[in-house]
Design a protein around this nucleic acid. Sequence first.
DNA 1: TCGGGAATGCAAACTTGTTATCAATCTGGC
DNA 2: GCCAGATTGATAACAAGTTTGCATTCCCGA
Lengths: 235, 235
Amino acid sequence: MTDFFDLDTPALLPLLPDATRDALLAAAVPVHYRDGALVHARGDHKPGLSVVRSGTVRIGNPGSDGSYTTTSILGPGHCFGEFTLFADLPRTHDVMAIGDVVIDQISAPRVMALYDADPKLGWALLCLATRRLHALIEFAEDLRRLPLPVQLAKHLLAMTRQHEPATAPASVALVQDDLASMFGVSRVSIGKALRRLAADGLVEIGYGRLTLPDRPRLATWLAERAVLMPVTAGG
Amino acid sequence: MTDFFDLDTPALLPLLPDATRDALLAAAVPVHYRDGALVHARGDHKPGLSVVRSGTVRIGNPGSDGSYTTTSILGPGHCFGEFTLFADLPRTHDVMAIGDVVIDQISAPRVMALYDADPKLGWALLCLATRRLHALIEFAEDLRRLPLPVQLAKHLLAMTRQHEPATAPASVALVQDDLASMFGVSRVSIGKALRRLAADGLVEIGYGRLTLPDRPRLATWLAERAVLMPVTAGG
DNA sequence: TCGGGAATGCAAACTTGTTATCAATCTGGC
DNA sequence: GCCAGATTGATAACAAGTTTGCATTCCCGA
């Protein structure tokens, strides 16, 4: 599993032409981190772009009340750190290694030089930021409008979108606690929501694993419950 | 009042050097819209960038259940339409004129030409998208973690940030129904939250108007209730 | 100045999610 | 095979928000 909560957003590297990607990686310093190591901490001031070379990282923040909110989980090819470059902000989130990971670290001056030299980099970053923004707006709207089981179903479906063939059952390795921290709700609620979906045969609950036995049916079920008016083609 | 729910995000025009801004506006076609007119509709396919010249627009979406969610309200200098340019998406939101407005419409090919000709445009758009992304992430986290009165207080404070002097009372023309649609809650809840804040003397509830009599005190009150660990300087 | 529409206040019954605690079940390693 | 720890299920008391319906208050224009 590469990443399961990236809101279906594309990675940076595939968006880059070969030459641009090579230049970017040539400017990078690969750094190893062990499981649980902190790649960046909220509040850090060192700006730069980071690209996941191998492994997975968790982006999130602990609350002062002991809770923890996972914002995103990123796999190979995904990048983070744009805020420190373009929004002139300190690190806004903790970034923690899940298992052993290698991160390509590119310092701010080097990113700037590449940006000036090759407009394709800026273009890709713009595409990425825009798609993330869009995904996040949708997520925020879902958060406000959809009941938990529907949100949950939507994301489970998104997580398995790349599983082929699309009509085959798909399963993800996921612990209910993790789901809870992603949605910012308690495990109890996640459990209830899952059991409601399971009662309709839409998911099968395993031990540390969820299975979607019939994704087309789940998609139909979801479409019936979407709150947004369907987008009418035309223009 | 220019805009009151832009999540404290800067406008596009002030981010541009004079030359870039002039080139952008030279490529634009100004279009008038009357109060309530639809500037874009969700699902429209015509790509392009729009810049508010005068007046205010509401970005949002109606739900199939009759509800309406306001995503943002933008004033002069702010832009929208990046999704159609960089994420290759149809319009994701309705854009409606609040009062009479003038919008500078710039077609996709013209934006592309400007992007290639002047890296400053891409830079500004990247800054903008990044800041919006950051603001939205924070908003989404608040949505999940903060009780409604705290969220409300935070946004009222943000809405009045540009009112000078910062220690003076500030008031915004706002109807509770609008607040409800912004936060995706019912008017009843907004009313309750407001009355709770009013009980502490943090806001004064008027008819179609809210007043913050002591913003420094409100800021202190908020800081005590922030969930995120304070950002520790350093790095 | 007074009437009507807009905006706000209030109450009751309901739904959903929370915390806390404990029981049941699964899995991997010895 | 079996046990310890991890994971899930279940329950109860509680908190927050929703919907519905109606009362009240405020402003503005005739």
